[in-house]
Design a protein around this nucleic acid. Structure first.
Lengths: 143, 143
DNA sequence: AATAAATGTTAGGTTAGACTAACAAGAGGA
DNA sequence: TCCTCTTGTTAGTCTAACCTAACATTTATT
């Protein structure tokens, strides 16, 4: 199975999260969330369906297949690893962290992401590092 | 001036580096470097020229304008900050670091990049952190 | 149930960025 | 100089991802 485009990963991610937290998704929700037209959502749904990642047909309820589930969870994991790295280690705001995670999650390599995940664990164990960096960062703002 | 696309930033970056290290660039070099056809290079050169970032006309030598210079240097800075973060702090190989920097440089926010740059300085001052992380990373490989 | 509002689909367009194939221009060697 | 090879350009295509406008279907309201 060839890699999904950044765009299709976004659609799948929204579908996954929406089902997880609201038990269901409608095309109009996806459109709002991704700031695209309803027509674009229909197009994306057809592509995801053709690839066997969601179950979907005209005017039908959207569900995720097992394969789609695996991919969606992988995207979501990438997202949350990056986001917590940006927020907890680099000290970015929640929003800043989220926005960057949304974009970078699609293009980072598995290996580099792995290093980032380990770094998050590392910083949990050695929490003084994070504090020292925050101090260092503030000192550097004036320069 | 509106933001350049990732693709045009790549072209400009190659032009900048090529001129910096070889005093000149030819379209065929750009094509090789970016793995695109010569036709695609011609198209990109016309766009960059229209935007006033390079001086260029049919069959003519390519040079960078002052404005193009600023943008190119900014891209190159983003690239090298990211690359050294990935290599020196996260311990990725040179190649891994470069490849990811090439992609991420186009989409990271200025604010997050700034935090990364400060983190690189921080790790230079506190070099024990990097060593501890490398140890921690190796220990975590087996889990 | 009838109608109005919301949602989903289709058809047809646009744009950026790539491609190939064919042709044009320039550069180097015999 | 002529010929050949390399390099650059053009024309025409393709694809992904978006859009709008019009139409179809479903859902909600009276």
């Amino acid at each position: 199975m060839e890699k999904l485009s950044a765009s299709l990963e976004d659609y799948l991610e929204v579908i996954y999260n929406s089902i997880k937290y609201n038990d269901t998704v409608k095309a109009v929700d996806i459109a709002r969330e991704l700031n695209v037209s309803r027509a674009s959502v229909t197009e994306a749904l057809n592509k995801l369906s053709t690839k066997g990642l969601i179950n979907y047909g005209r005017y039908q309820t959207i569900t995720i297949t097992d394969m789609g589930m695996k991919i969606a969870q992988d995207v979501v994991n990438r997202h949350s690893s990056l986001s917590s790295f940006f927020e907890n280690i680099l000290g970015a705001s929640r929003q800043e962290a989220e926005e960057n995670a949304c974009r970078i999650e699609h293009i980072i390599s598995a290996e580099l992401l792995d290093r980032i995940e380990v770094y998050v664990k590392f910083a949990e164990v050695k929490s003084e590092i994070t504090n020292e960096f925050k101090k260092f960062y503030l000192e550097n703002l004036n320069k």
